[in-house]
C-alpha cells in the first residue's frame, strides 16, 4: 500500500462500475463533438486502461470539468492538449505525439506492411524468372 490513488481494484479487464454521466451543456454540436473526442483521447492516470470519459475517478471528473471549461473559453484541440501535457506530460495522451521516441510506433505498422508486401511480391515474381 504505497500510494493512495483512487485505484479501483478489479479482477481482470474492466475497471469501473458506474458510467460517469454529467449533463454538460454545449452551445453547438461542434463543441459537444470536441468534448467527446478530447475526453476519449485523454487517459485517466489514476485508472488502468480508461480514458477520462469512461472513468468515475474524481481526478477524471476534474479533468472533464477542465476540458469543458477550456471549450467554453473557446479553446481548440491544440489548446486542450497543451494544457494537459503542460501539467501531466505525454502519458496523459492516448494518442502519443510523433517524435524521436515514438516514430517506430507510428511508422512501424507501415514498415511492416511494406516488408510484407515486398516478401509477397518476391514470392510471386519468382514465377517470372523461370
Amino acid at each position: 500500500m504505497k500510494k493512495c490513488f483512487w485505484v479501483i481494484w478489479v479482477v481482470g479487464s474492466f475497471s469501473v462500475w458506474a458510467a460517469p454521466i454529467e449533463p454538460y451543456e454545449f452551445a453547438n454540436e461542434t463543441d459537444r463533438a470536441l468534448f467527446q473526442k478530447m475526453t476519449h483521447e485523454l487517459r485517466c492516470l489514476t485508472c488502468e486502461a480508461q480514458s477520462i470519459a469512461e472513468s468515475n475517478a474524481p481526478w477524471a471528473q476534474d479533468l472533464r470539468r477542465e476540458v469543458y471549461r477550456l471549450i467554453q473559453e473557446g479553446g481548440d484541440e491544440m489548446a486542450i492538449l497543451t494544457f494537459m501535457t503542460d501539467r501531466y506530460g505525454d502519458s496523459v495522451l492516448y494518442k502519443p505525439p510523433f517524435n524521436q521516441a515514438t516514430w517506430v510506433l507510428w511508422l512501424g505498422p507501415f514498415m511492416l506492411l511494406l516488408l510484407g508486401g515486398f516478401i509477397l511480391g518476391r514470392i510471386v515474381s519468382r514465377q517470372k524468372g523461370n
Binding site: 483521447e41 487517459r43 480514458s51 502519458s91 492516448y94 502519443p96 521516441a101 515514438t102
Partner: peptide, 23 residues
C-alpha cells in the same frame, strides 16, 4: 507494438507514454 510500446519506452527510460484507441 501499440500494446507493448509504453513498456518498451519505459524499460529503456525513454519516457512514459500511453497508447490508446486513437492509435
Amino acid at each position: 507494438l501499440g500494446t507493448l510500446y509504453p513498456l518498451i519506452l519505459d524499460a529503456f527510460n525513454l519516457g512514459l507514454i500511453s497508447v490508446g484507441p486513437p492509435y
